[in-house]
Amino acid sequence: MTVQLPPNSDGDPVLAAGPQTHVTLPAPAIELINAARWYGNVVAVNDVSFSLGAGVTGLLGPNGAGKTTVLHMLAGFLAPSAGTVHVLGRSPNRDPSVYRQIGLVPEREAVYPFLTGLDYVRFNARLQGLTNSDQASRDAIRRVGLEDAMDRPIGTYSKGMRQRAKVAGALVHDPQVLLLDEPFNGMDPRQRLAMMDLLTEMAAAGRTILFSSHILEEVERVGNDILVMVAGRLAASGDYRAIRALMTDRPHTITIRSSDDRRLAASLMGDSAIFGVELGAAGLSVRTAHLSVFRRLIAGASRSAGVRLFEVVSGDESLESVFDYLVRR
């Protein structure tokens, strides 16, 4: 199955279905056309197409979905096995000059531990050939809110501080495209918010920002476009909230043990939110599309039917199962 997605122009979510028409915007900053990457027999990224312009986009997916592979292809550290990868209109592979316009925040935590935060950012600025490297470095440090710690060696930093130092180093040359691999790892909620604000601010200034995450909630605040990858393929793209709704409105299966399963079943069947009820040895299986409605319903139903609830087990709520649902569709 080929997945081709139009650029997220209208905000409508598009779930991977059949081949669709490919619409091109004038010169997207990031463009993947049928890009694939495999290692021997293992396919890490399978026939992925999308293009992004200015704005913040989240690249979501469970571990092993191929997010890092996509970012590394965009950063020029992996050649696609098939298809095309373009950043600012050219192939980033084997052409170091593109890094003048790309900032990369890798997932690996290590930063030269003997450098101070400021020295590290300044090192990046100088390698970028900035003439005002000192001023640019101090600005970048300020933007990530690391002024207090900038004279301490990075070896003494906490995870979140190190993450911010990496981001400062990657944006010191004000790149057109910023790629961040799991940037919110190790950040506390407040730092996460500050980082989100920073990314949104850069996007407003016309930069293209793509970050990856395997935690759905992390993206909540950006309120922007997301791409969802599952098992090496693009499973969904579009507005975060719309996709989120599609994900939560999928059928859920809930298992209930009660003092009288049969009577409870009869009472539940009356509601339109319930698709199906099944009596089994393990208890009562209920299928519903709306978890929130069900939660309110079950309390009333058991009270009115005079049934005591022993156990209510809802199906797997992890992101993995959500993604799983998306690909099986």
């Binding site: 790309i102 930063v111 970028q128």
Partner: peptide, 15 residues
């Protein structure tokens, strides 16, 4: 091994 090589290679300088 540490992955810090990326900080050198993701720069507009010849390899």
């Amino acid at each position: 091994e540490d992955g810090t090589i990326l900080y050198l290679l993701a720069k507009p300088i010849s390899r």
